[in-house]
Design a protein around this nucleic acid. Structure first.
Lengths: 239, 239
DNA sequence: ATGCCGAATTGATCAAGGTCAACAACAAGG
DNA sequence: CCTTGTTGTTGACCTTGATCAATTCGGCAT
């Protein structure tokens, strides 16, 4: 199911460029990057880019589609740790031990650009802008995880759901997609796992927010009706 | 309160070397590192190395003492996101936006080595081993955070407390300290914040584990009596 | 069509952990 | 010495979200 495509017009042509790459690369630097990212891979819905324990060789930029990452502990427990949309980079968990620590699974038919990591490190040496960019991307992941810990540790169910939706919305906005009207790519169960809640709680919270008139839910279709009030509900709630 | 010490015998002499630095550096490489890390800073208990919003200039290796990092959201909520002991590196949250996103506070009188980040990036270009090491350290932080999310999202109170204690124990062991008999540097409230629990719950759980006979608690003094059973309680609990 | 399966919704009940409160131990400072 | 503040322990009670269960809806294969 995993088809490999070479000879794509690479990064220099890609409309996600400003998300994946540092701004202000020279022509020569861009062509270096083009030679680095020479492979694109299609991942069918439900398939994994990599699984926990797989040898780490590359990081992946989402070109198209949607992914979740999931960690599993010794005793069958598992938890969704992130969702990734186009322009986002995943797989950096593998660097530390040359082995991935989570599964990365496509939530719909997707495409990723494969960035061989050791080559990336090599290029980083020649192109300092690239190195700094890499560090920023990794650091951003750390900051995001901290926010996530904050959410899991300090927020109640309703707040978590709101924070989740607002975060999605903001990321869609950043990509130029509709930010108040979108389709969820994941199930209630996956949302619940991500938020540390049960799927029933997620469902109930959606219903409740709809009754409140701040949200419209119809299956996977979400419409944020009153983002201002949603934001208020986030910050006021647990005063 | 924050006293600065120059002219210390630097990394090449430090007994934490193998925790902070990549193994197998040549003499010349080591001397490069020595020139990089030229400042040590004493931080008194309760003082911050940096605070949220501070401009990011360096990362810090704990030389001695104990730290917590804490994120605070717009609405006065705050949460402990990590504890750091000697040989561990903190501050990498600041890289992404050149600004720190959390407070780093000493839990006891401590000392850190200051590693100017841009200089570190410069040296990384010349010493690939150093670059790879940096990437690993950052990635390790990402993996650790994922584990934390797992804990916050999927474990019950007792499991979280056990996981916390076993993790401390294992880190002490790695440093050659007593791993089954140690003093907690943080309050019950800080533990609770870290684990997404209230301090009363932490206290009750300690008491309960003591009744079970797997643990001895006397104020801050912890003695792990039966680590084997503790590990079992972790994995079996929520079967 | 029909039947089946996965996803979602909703209700009833229950338990884990939060909240509130009283109190003990201990350190710091007058 | 007593006072005051911080930290920790324990109890009684309550709330949030989990659990269990019934039902619906839509897609897909036969």
């Amino acid at each position: 199911m995993t088809e490999i495509t070479k000879l794509q017009p690479a990064c220099s042509q890609c409309n996600l460029q400003e998300l994946c790459l540092p701004i202000g690369l020279s022509e020569t630097e861009l062509s270096l990057v083009d030679s680095l990212v020479d492979e694109r891979r299609k991942i069918a819905r439900g398939e994994a880019i990599f699984r926990s324990g797989d040898r780490f060789t590359a990081i992946y930029a989402v070109k198209l589609g949607f992914f979740k990452t999931e960690v599993l502990s010794e005793d069958g427990r598992h938890q969704v740790t992130s969702f990734y949309m186009p322009g986002e980079v995943l797989g950096m968990d593998g660097i530390s031990a040359e082995t991935h620590h989570c599964d990365a699974i496509a939530l719909e038919d997707s495409e990723v650009c494969l960035i061989p990591f050791h080559e990336l490190e090599t290029i980083s040496v020649k192109v300092p802008t690239m190195q700094r960019h890499l560090h920023r991307v990794m650091s951003r992941e750390i900051v995001r995880d901290q926010g996530m810990m904050m959410m899991l540790g300090a927020m109640r169910a309703e707040e978590r759901v709101i924070a989740f939706l607002l975060n999605l919305s903001q990321r869609y906005a950043a990509r130029g997609y509709a930010s108040t009207d979108f389709n969820l790519r994941m199930t209630r169960e996956e949302i619940g796992s991500y938020l540390g809640l049960k799927l029933e709680t997620v469902s109930r919270t959606f219903s409740h927010l709809q009754e409140e008139g701040v949200l419209q839910v119809e299956k996977k279709r979400i419409r944020l009706v009153d983002t201002v009030r949603l934001k208020k509900m986030l910050s006021q709630d647990r005063l």
